[in-house]
Structure formats: structure tokens, C-alpha cells
């Protein structure tokens, strides 16, 4: 009566179960297909906006700043550029880890679509994070390409800064994605995060002026932010002044945040998708 063997594998197409790395990569591929048609719409906020900051503050305001100890002896433009790289990477990442995640769970339910295939909730998370890292990386690279002819880059060490900038962004993105996955109805959570965490961080974590200028009681708060650690790394890498122990400390803190975010994200994704 039937040709189907319930325990066999006689499917007509060769459907397979992709391994975790491949599965994550397929999720990236899905996002890429969208991005390659739509990247223009995000270029302003992710690339041009930081470039405008660089021009206005680095070239404009910076012309009034005398290089000195506070700027590590650099022209203000070069003092600013590597830090702006980290800061804009974090901002790009934060945008990608709020509404797009909520939407994929709640409005479009695309994650539910993906987990009906051989791909699991954890692999969806891996793919999503990988995609955000790549996207942050593209934007940061574009920023460097524009900043170079402006004379804003202190040296080839900025290529290492690029890697650190992506890590900095992910240190915020991974926990944020884990949190976004818990939101059932968006009320104020995202604007609270933007206003009270991301915004103050981008202003006070050492991007535009040394943290030493802030009151002493603020310092521990600054040290908690991933951006401060990232800024230190990016700036020192750019001028070739990385010191082993501090650098390892900063890296360890950022990696720990990523790891914590991934760990929490696995739980929140599984809880939301495999219910």
C-alpha cells in the first residue's frame, strides 16, 4: 500500500542534519541574503554616523586640542579614531541585539520556522551571534577604510583594534541577545537599556576623553563596562603600545562577558523555542 519505510532513509532529496558549525553558518547565510540587498539602509547609522563624529570631533574640535599626556601624545584625531571604532562597533551590535531578536521570536517568528528544520535552538543562537559579529566587523572595516585617508589611523595596529572592537561589541551583544530572548512584550526595556546603559557608556567609557577626568567614585562603574576595556585595547593596539598583563586582563573580562552571554542565551533560546 505504501512505499515509505518508517525507519529507513528513503527521502527523495538528500536532507541531512548539518553539524553545529555548518548549521550556524546556514543561519548566517540566511541573514546575508537579506543584508546583501538591504545593507544600504543601515550604512548611515553604522558607518557614516561614526565618520561624522570623527570629522566633527576629531578634525573640528580636535584642532583645538594640543597633543599631550592626556592624549597619549597623539593628535586628538588619532586618539579618537581607534576608540570610536570600539564605540561604534558596540552601538551597531546593540541595535542588532534588541528589536531584530524580539521580532524573530515574536512578530515574524522566524526562529520558530528555523527550529522546525534539523537546526536546533542553540544553533540558531550561534548563527545569530556569528552574524552580528560579522556585521559589526563589516561596519568597523568600512569605518577604517574611510578614516585612513583622513589621517586618523595611528598605524597598522588598527587591524588588531578591529578584532578587539568586534570582541568589545560581542561582550555587550551576547548578554543582550540572551536578555532580548526573554522579552514577551516590548514595553520600555529596550529604550531603558539604550538610555541608561549604552548611551552613558559611549560618553563616559573613555572614548572622547580620559576616564581620569571623571570623579573618582565613577571609575569603578566605568571599569564594569565592556567599552572601557575595549577602548583601552583598541587604542593601545593602534599605537602599538599593548602591554601584556593589562591587555590580558581586558581580554579576559571581555571574553568572560561573551561566555556568560552565550551561556545565558542558550538557556533563554531553548526555553523560548523548545517549549
Amino acid at each position: 500500500m505504501t512505499t515509505t519505510d518508517p525507519t529507513g532513509t528513503n527521502t527523495r532529496t538528500a536532507a541531512r542534519v548539518p553539524g553545529t558549525v555548518r548549521a550556524a553558518w546556514l543561519v548566517v547565510e540566511g541573514r546575508w541574503i537579506w543584508y546583501r540587498r538591504n545593507w544600504r539602509s543601515s550604512v548611515f547609522s553604522t558607518v557614516l554616523q561614526p565618520v561624522l563624529f570623527l570629522v566633527a570631533l576629531g578634525l573640528g574640535l580636535g584642532s583645538q586640542v594640543r597633543p599631550g599626556a592626556a592624549t597619549d601624545g597623539l593628535p586628538y584625531l588619532q586618539y579618537l579614531a581607534p576608540a570610536l571604532l570600539a564605540s561604534s562597533a558596540l552601538q551597531t551590535g546593540s541595535g542588532e541585539s534588541t528589536y531584530p531578536i524580539l521580532s524573530a521570536f515574536k512578530w515574524q517568528r522566524t526562529y520558530h520556522g528555523i527550529t522546525a528544520t534539523p537546526i536546533s535552538a542553540t544553533q540558531v543562537l550561534a548563527g545569530q551571534l556569528l552574524w552580528i559579529a560579522l556585521r559589526v566587523g563589516f561596519s568597523a572595516a568600512a569605518f577604517l577604510v574611510i578614516a585612513a585617508p583622513l589621517g586618523a589611523l595611528p598605524g597598522p595596529g588598527v587591524l588588531l583594534s578591529l578584532v578587539f572592537a568586534v570582541l568589545t561589541a560581542m561582550a555587550f551583544v551576547a548578554p543582550m541577545v540572551a536578555y532580548s530572548a526573554t522579552i514577551e512584550t516590548e514595553v520600555q526595556q529596550f529604550s531603558v537599556v539604550m538610555r541608561f546603559i549604552v548611551m552613558p557608556m559611549t560618553i563616559f567609557a573613555g572614548t572622547f576623553f580620559p576616564v581620569a577626568q571623571l570623579p573618582v567614585w565613577v571609575h569603578p562603574l566605568v571599569w564594569l563596562t565592556p567599552l572601557w576595556h575595549g577602548t583601552e585595547l583598541c587604542r593601545d593596539a593602534a599605537i602599538g603600545a599593548l602591554e601584556l598583563l593589562p591587555a590580558l586582563g581586558h581580554l579576559a573580562y571581555l571574553v568572560a562577558l561573551v561566555a556568560a552571554g552565550v551561556h545565558l542565551g542558550r538557556r533563554t533560546f531553548v526555553r523560548r523555542l523548545e517549549i
Binding site: 532529496t13 538528500a14 536532507a15 541531512r16 548539518p18 546556514l26 547565510e29 540566511g30 528544520t117 534539523p118
Partner: peptide, 10 residues
Amino acid sequence: LYVYGRYFGL
């Protein structure tokens, strides 16, 4: 359709 099919390793 394309993206979805790829999730099946096709």
C-alpha cells in the same frame, strides 16, 4: 524557499 531548503543541508 531557498534559505529554508538550505537549513535541511540541501
